[in-house]
Design a protein around this nucleic acid. Structure first.
Length: 283
DNA sequence: TGCCAGGCCTTCC
DNA sequence: GGAAGGCATGGC
């Protein structure tokens, strides 16, 4: 049974939000101009026309709230964007190409593992691996005559070996994933603790996982638990920060200090606009 | 075809 | 404690 939810939205661009590199499992279906993906335990088909979004799912229960939570629709991005557009002209210009990006609130376990996979990797291959892990170990859901797969639970990942992970194309990160799954199962409190902790406390907890350094930790903090003040710096963000603000090769410490001072509590969303636009060749 | 990728770990000084 | 090298492997 397919149910539909309609929502009026402000300052939300579905395309930018799903294609800006923060998520790895949404497919664009060109013929229908829709996106299909999985949020937690349900399949979601979503599309946008002007300021309306339309949602279908295999599971109607609480669907509207799930969508609002996932796409951060409770937050007023109109106010947020007008605020950051005043920081400097780089951000003002950048926003012209990417207004409506929302920072998603994605499932924590999926994001921890996805971003461990992201290290020294490319987005296509990250997607491929995360999808393979879901297909092999997650629950199958039929929707619209097709099969979709949930990201596996920790219980489902428990018996997956390093060799199994290797065969999903994650390379040297296989042992980090295995180790992280074990750690999460052994410390069942840790996920709740992460959500309740201060950002700095949460970062320290994440840094204890193998395969999680400062950049991956900040991605988890930003793309899953809404810590909007963090500023993940990968090779793309480093390059564009050097180009726009420093005009020379610059250390990570200096870039982070600059972001903290100038972008402050909104560094995360600024970072995502820069990341999207530098990759699109807009800036 | 060789370089690059949403970096991190280990080793060595 | 900081720098350098190694790492799996597909994408382009």
């Amino acid at each position: 049974m397919i149910k539909l939810v309609e929502l009026e939205v402000k300052c939300f661009t579905l395309k930018y939000t799903l294609e800006c590199g923060q998520c790895f499992r949404w497919d664009y279906i060109e013929q229908e101009d829709v996106y299909i993906g999985v949020i937690h335990d349900r399949v979601i088909k979503i599309w946008q026309k002007a300021n309306m979004i339309y949602v279908e799912s295999n599971n109607e229960e609480n669907l509207k709230n799930v969508i609002q939570e996932y796409f951060d629709l409770y937050k007023d991005y109109f106010i947020l964007e007008s605020k950051i557009s005043k920081i400097d002209t780089n951000i003002y210009e950048s926003l012209k190409h990417s207004s409506g990006i929302r920072i998603l609130r994605q499932p924590l376990v999926e994001i921890i593992i996805s971003y461990i996979i992201s290290a020294n990797n490319n987005i296509k291959r990250i997607s491929k691996s995360v999808n393979l892990i879901s297909q092999r170990y997650g629950d199958r859901i039929s929707f619209d005559g097709k099969d979709y797969f949930l990201f596996p639970t920790l219980e489902q990942l428990k018996s997956v070996t390093i060799e199994d992970f290797l065969s999903t194309g994650v390379g040297f990160r296989a042992r980090y994933i295995k180790n992280t799954v074990e750690k999460l199962i052994d410390n069942s409190q840790i996920l709740e603790k992460l959500k309740d902790a201060t950002t700095e406390q949460a970062r320290q907890i994440l840094l204890e996982f193998q395969g999680v350094g400062t950049k991956v930790a900040d991605c988890i903090l930003l793309f899953s638990i809404g810590r909007s003040e963090v500023f993940p710096v990968d090779v793309w963000v480093k390059r564009i920060m050097e180009k726009l603000y420093f005009k020379k090769n610059t250390s990570m410490e200096e870039i982070l200090a600059y972001a903290k001072e100038h972008f402050r509590e909104d560094a995360g969303i600024v970072q995502q606009h820069l990341f999207y636009n530098v990759r699109e060749g807009n800036i």
